[in-house]
Write a protein that binds this DNA or RNA. Structure first.
Lengths: 202, 202
DNA sequence: GTCTATACACCGATAGAC
DNA sequence: GTCTATCGGTGTATAGAC
């Protein structure tokens, strides 16, 4: 009976861990890393602050775990796409998915290129592994799309990849939501149209 | 002789005020509002922290003054443009100017839509006045450009204006600079090309 | 007005009882 | 493993001497 109870407890433990990451994800979206406090996280999950440290040894590790999970989900979304889609189609869809998730409150902020978090991310093997894998896939899609003649000739692959990363945390989304003139679906399509087609008349 | 010395002192005072704003601008660009401390500012200017409060009564007021000066300069840049330029040309040039300034370290970060700073900005008459004026000019340019058929039909004026705001603090710039494959001038032109022409082949 | 010193609050992390 | 209580450090803002 002990070999039944142990897996059960472990299940409980993992479930709480997921709940913590959910809270962190939404808090990162709301306030960003610097303004998010461990008290915020503990309050939202409904546990004591001290208990958080039984799961994650620091605030940076906590955020790294949340971001790692997010990157994994992005990879999963890429896996789910139909096999016959063109590269340009996949790139467009992954942006659409990102903005959609963000509007639902699940996708975080821009991790600033400086500061303690960035340093901690670099030291996280989990994070770096999945980040490297995702980056590789994006670059492959970019060069495939370029080979098919689907990408603008006056922007390099670097610009393509970084632009798509950045659009995931573009404040335009917040502005448009606050303006209130567009539905969520219209916001997503406007952003995709502006990113891929530009804002100048064609 | 007193009426000579008083304006001189006032001149000294104002000069120091400008020096403080310079320091704040570069610090905001480097670390953002949350991570910037009053000690940082005082150290960079070379004065004591307490003295800062003789010029600005709070950290938020300090940042608001720096951002207000930046918006004024943006307005000045719009004023400097040749009278015969088309609206689309002006919009393109103001983006080019923004990114150029940012690469030189003078343009701040993304002011997050939440937090103490945003609240303080809303209460600042100076900031709101110049922000409102600039917004008005941008909207006028957008609708003029649209009337001329120079803007994409599938993005609204809201999207045009907010997109240009957001491109001024787009992390793509940081990424490209870190990648090191493009010169500053190439970064500016890539961003302008990607924003106005999009990343999809035309 | 500029300095030094300090009050006051907040936050990350830890200790120790249960 | 969860809780309460607290330490140590940092940051904004102020007080008071000069």
């Amino acid at each position: 009976m002990l070999n039944i109870k142990i897996p059960f407890r472990k299940h409980q433990f993992d479930a709480r861990k997921e709940a913590i990451l959910d809270a962190v994800n939404s808090l990162l979206a709301e306030k960003g890393f610097d303004l998010m406090t461990m008290d915020d996280v503990a309050d939202r999950v409904g546990i004591a602050k001290g208990s958080l440290y039984k799961h994650f040894s620091s605030k940076e590790k906590l955020a790294a775990a949340a971001l790692t999970r997010l990157l994994r989900e992005t990879n999963d979304e890429l896996d789910r796409m139909p096999a016959d889609w063109r590269a340009i189609q996949r790139l467009e869809q992954i942006l659409r998915w990102s903005i959609h998730r963000r509007l639902q409150g699940g996708v975080p902020f821009l991790p600033s290129t400086r500061g303690a978090l960035q340093r901690s991310l670099m030291l996280s093997l989990d994070y770096m592994t999945v980040a490297y894998a995702m980056n590789k896939r994006f670059r492959a899609l970019a060069s495939e799309a370029r080979a098919s003649g689907d990408l603008a000739t006056d922007v390099s692959d670097d610009v393509i990849v970084f632009t798509l990363y950045s659009r995931s945390c573009d404040p335009t989304v917040e502005f448009l939501r606050q303006a209130g003139t567009l539905s969520d679906e219209q916001i997503v399509e406007s952003m995709v149209a502006a990113t891929f087609g530009g804002i100048r008349a064609r």
